[in-house]
């Protein structure tokens, strides 16, 4: 995307999302909220995969921590306090990311992929057996959180809070990516050894990126639990980790915008295919396999797609 086009499209998208409740019904708004939640989640992973070069296959672990935090902070049949539960959920996810990060960052490359997947599954298996977390059936969050006059169960409060969170996440990531921190992360992705030989304490940068990404994933998980009113171990699982990675890659990683587009495409596809057949994962799987073989650059770079197709036709 050109430098002029992007802010224009972003502004347009924001206006559409702000105005959406005027025209869309409940189904449309729920779907839009779902896309925005997944977009937050996908952007958090893009920070790791697209900018720091850390391919995590266990990112859902922190999504799940955020979701379960809301469950644990909600009174049995009442609403949790928004002002308490939201920060606590984010902090819990950040803490989990710090602990897991200290372990997984001892590895890199393909080890990192395997180790993050394994630790994500550790959360999953733990949750399936833990009675205080509702076991393998999960548990209900009966009411959405509220704070004074703001009740996420009423009107469009939930939709707009998710929109604010999306905008804030986007802005925060843009700021830190433009800062020396973000430049250093890109350097680490490009050539970690050289960064260290220049004097950067690369592990600290990677750990902080891991914690920030974990915290934002927790934010998304918190909203997920609030939206559907239910938590279950699948929220920690590798299938969700895999599908969010898919969003990042198919949208074109290392752009943030791509993560949003990828989230929208996959959520819509899931909805659309899910209506057609219970076996919608089959066309999804075929789509992914085909995408890897045909589109090495993701979907956001039409020029690259065009080039790739031309080169293919020449061979």
């Amino acid at each position: 995307m050109s430098a002029r086009l992007r802010p224009a499209l972003l502004g347009l998208g924001l206006i559409v999302l702000i105005a959406l409740p005027l025209v869309a019904g409940k189904f449309g708004l729920d779907l839009a909220a779902r896309i925005m939640i997944m977009a937050i989640f996908a952007m958090s992973l893009d920070l790791l995969v697209g900018f720091a070069g850390m391919v995590s296959l266990g990112h859902a672990a922190f999504f799940g921590v955020g979701a379960y935090a809301l469950y644990l902070l909600s009174p049995q049949y009442g609403a949790a306090s928004l002002l308490v539960s939201l920060p606590v959920a984010i902090a819990a996810a950040a803490l989990a990311a710090l602990v897991i990060g200290l372990l997984v960052l001892r590895s890199s490359g393909v080890y990192f992929i395997m180790v993050t997947l394994a630790f994500g599954e550790m959360f999953y298996y733990y949750a399936t057996g833990a009675r205080w977390l509702g076991g393998s059936d999960g548990a209900y969050v009966y009411q959405r959180p509220s704070a004074g006059p703001v009740d996420l169960g009423q009107g469009h409060a939930f939709y707009y809070l998710v929109l604010i969170a999306l905008a804030a996440t986007y802005a925060l990531l843009r700021v830190i990516l433009r800062a020396p921190f973000g430049h250093a992360l890109r350097g680490i992705r490009s050539n970690e050894h050289r960064m260290r030989s220049l004097g950067f304490a690369a592990p600290r940068y990677k750990l902080l990126a891991f914690v920030i990404a974990g915290a934002l994933a927790g934010l998304a998980g918190y909203f997920d639990a609030a939206q559907f009113g239910v938590v279950n171990p699948e929220l920690f699982g590798w299938r969700l980790s895999g599908s969010v990675l898919m969003m990042v890659i198919l949208g074109g990683m290392g752009t943030l915008d791509g993560a949003i587009i990828g989230a929208a495409v996959l959520v819509l596809l899931e909805n659309f295919l899910g209506d057609l057949t219970t076996h919608w994962l089959l066309p999804m799987g075929l789509f992914i396999v085909a995408a890897v073989l045909l589109l090495p650059q993701g979907l956001t770079d039409p020029a690259a797609l065009w080039r790739a197709m031309r080169e293919r036709s020449r061979v």
């Binding site: 700021v175 830190i176 430049h183 250093a184 960064m195 004097g199 600290r204």
Partner: peptide, 20 residues
Amino acid sequence: CRLAAQARRQPGIRLFRPAL
């Protein structure tokens, strides 16, 4: 070269001010 200079002059983590 900027990254190299950053390593020297801002070795700590700087999160907010633009690098440039």
